[in-house]
Amino acid sequence: MSDPVSALNGASFTGFATIREIGPLGMISLRHKGGAALTKAIKAAVGTKVPAQRRIEIKGEMACGWMSPDEYLLILPYAKVGATMAALAKALAGEHHLAADVSDARAVFRVEGAKAAEVLAKLSPVDFAKLERGELRRSRAAQVAAAMWAQDGGFTVVCFRSVAGYVMGLLIHSAQPGSELA
């Protein structure tokens, strides 16, 4: 079998901030209404606690984000998805839940640099000054859905795979040298 190829095959751009498409990352959409079994399953899958409302718990290269009151996004290495899906099925057997592998359905970008937030502030109706550390914000980037959070001195932005080219175009447009906001 071929190696998995991310939507833009690692495209990048350097303007007043740096844009990199990364991935593919392992991602599992987990729907469950909460409880001890969920806590245990998430801990076993990505090693984090269950994130509170609008939070993302990050542990190394794994993470768990709160997507809605009954939806979580597990982030893990792409190669571990199969085993983790199987483990989740076992851990949540008998519980009403849905785990879907969405690793290939997403594109992931890193926006880095001291003014990374200014790139995103041109695209999303998000108050970045009030975005807390470890807060996962679901919003839009111009005309498409996007999720974003601050991480490692920059931002991680997740969108749907089919619009990766559009989002890269947005980020390149917004990071043009000379168009800093402050």
């Binding site: 111009a142 498409v144 749907f160 619009v163 990766a164 559009y166 175009g169 447009h173 917004s174």
Partner: peptide, 15 residues
């Protein structure tokens, strides 16, 4: 604003 040319509107592309 940015909605011109290639990014006038999101185009969805298959793999």
């Amino acid at each position: 604003g940015e909605s011109r040319g290639d990014i006038f509107q999101p185009l969805r592309r298959t793999p």
